[in-house]
């Protein structure tokens, strides 16, 4: 499963139940549409760290890294390339 699909599934299954959202596109604005709130950011960060073994620090918490699924995918890719 690609990182993109993995993220889309996680958001749909873990963050949006009860909100009548059935699909999330790679470029859908998660922030402008209120798809993720403060708690959702925390869940996403936990998921990304656990699933991909990367560290997301407080300095990474900027809208540009979380505004859509493509941006989160890029963040994971950068983190995986970064030296430990």
């Amino acid at each position: 499963m690609s990182v993109m699909t993995d993220l889309q599934e996680f958001i749909l299954e873990e963050i949006t139940p009860g909100r009548a959202i059935i699909a999330i596109g790679p470029d859908d604005d998660l922030l402008a549409h209120g798809i993720i709130d403060s708690l959702g950011v925390t869940q996403l960060v936990d998921f990304v760290c656990d699933r991909y073994g990367v560290t997301v620090g407080t300095e990474d918490l900027v809208p540009g890294n979380f505004h859509n699924v493509r941006a989160i995918e890029a963040l994971i890719a950068r983190k995986r390339r970064a030296p430990c």
Binding site: L31, A32, I36, D37, S38, G40, V41, L61, P63, F66
Partner: peptide, 9 residues
């Protein structure tokens, strides 16, 4: 148009 607080700092 507030966003999640952690991203809106």
């Amino acid at each position: 148009h507030p966003r999640p607080f952690a991203l809106d700092r």
